[in-house]
């Protein structure tokens, strides 16, 4: 592992040293695996946003059909 002291010290201001060191070790040993993790996270966000909009669309349809049913009854 290549030590990146300046970056490490910068990050140290915000995070406990243990976490910072682990993150650097993982990033170095697994060859920037967190780029892949970020891609996975983006896909997951995309799928959930998509599902949310489908959900809302169905909600609107349900309302419309309910209104039409009420009109027919009247």
């Amino acid at each position: 592992m290549i030590e990146k002291k300046s970056e490490k010290q910068k990050a140290k201001l915000f995070l406990p040293e243990k976490i910072v060191r682990r993150t650097f070790i993982i990033m170095e040993t697994y060859g920037k695996i967190f780029v892949v993790v970020t891609v996975l996270a983006v896909i997951l966000v995309g799928i959930f946003v998509y599902l949310f909009f489908i959900d809302r669309k169905i909600g609107k349809l349900e309302k419309e059909i309910q209104e039409k049913e009420n009109q027919i009854k009247q």
């Binding site: 993790v37 996270a41 997951l44």
Partner: peptide, 14 residues
């Protein structure tokens, strides 16, 4: 569900 899976997909690698 979203938060739990986002946590699993990110922290699961850490």
């Amino acid at each position: 569900s979203f938060l739990l899976l986002l946590y699993a997909v990110t922290y699961g690698f850490y």
